[in-house]
Amino acid sequence: MSESFTKGMARNIYYGGSVFFFLIFLSLTFHTTKEMPERDNRVNLSESVARGKALWEDNNCVGCHSLIGEGAYFAPELGNVYVRRGGGNIETFKGFMQGWMKAQPLNIPGRRQMPNFHLNDQQIDDLAEFLKFTAEMDVNDWPPNDEG
């Protein structure tokens, strides 16, 4: 690097640049949180959805599955599973979930195995409500198709 470009100048770019871009980041974050109510489906955030989210966390579902692309990549994406397995109908989806959760582990030799989390009917319904909620968020049309 050229001698006329001094350490002091580099330091000023570091401090000035980071503070400047951090402030822009904070402003965009502020704007985003103002916009999110239009997109994140919060009008439908019921008690049941909140309980479902707690169950999702307490059983570490994200340790195998992804949710809107984030999480582990060992098991299917669940952000849109309400569409894939429930066809967008909550009764169909709850029926599917009740059967699926209780059938675990499938014990098919060599197949990846989902544990049984011993959830009761109400809890499974709550989880279904949570997954319906995530499927109805406006996430800029991700994923590309129903397979997730």
Binding site: G63, C64, A72, F74, A75, N107, P109, R111, R112, Q113
Partner: peptide, 14 residues
């Protein structure tokens, strides 16, 4: 897929 699945499920290992 079912390697040690009972003892150490994937989510725990991860």
């Amino acid at each position: 897929g079912d390697f040690l699945a009972g003892a150490i499920p994937f989510n725990v290992a991860r």
